[in-house]
Amino acid sequence: METFLPNALDDLLIRARPAQGAPPNILRVLHAVHDLCGYIDPRAIPAIAHSQGATEANVAGVLSYYPSLNTQPAGRHRIQVCLGESCLANRCVRVVEAIQSKLGIELGQTTPDGQFTLEPVSCVGNCAVSPGVRIDGELNGRVRPSDVAGLLDRYR
């Protein structure tokens, strides 16, 4: 285990041990690991389980339940396309198609050069200026298919 666990992760898991009498919180630790590493390597499951006094099955169960806890590293830039109903009504599907054709990947995939990961998101609460596309945390509203090329070029 020590051979692959980076020291920072080791430290995190030591700090994440619940205090005497306090309940463990697997999801909280998973979030912390995700924030630290950008994803959760399934090989870290035993160490996470140990830190929380939980079983590996408990940890794997929580990890697989939450859609945005990734078990693989994402690309350098994360593109999230909102597929909420207001975005759908405002033709976000055409925006998705434009991004897919520009990058040559499908939803849920990362470009071979590791630059972009394309993810669907079910609603970002930007319904009044839809469709919405979030890139690395920056939200763009009223996105048209013709905007896609310029938008992505800003991140190259």
């Binding site: 309940p23 999801l27 929580v62 939450y66 806890l69």
Partner: peptide
């Protein structure tokens, strides 16, 4: 973490407890 049903109050509490 992207889960819609966690807006249901009892699922929310489970999630808050880390499960």
């Amino acid at each position: 973490a992207g889960s819609y049903v966690c807006g249901e109050e009892t699922a929310l509490l489970e999630s808050l407890e880390g499960r």
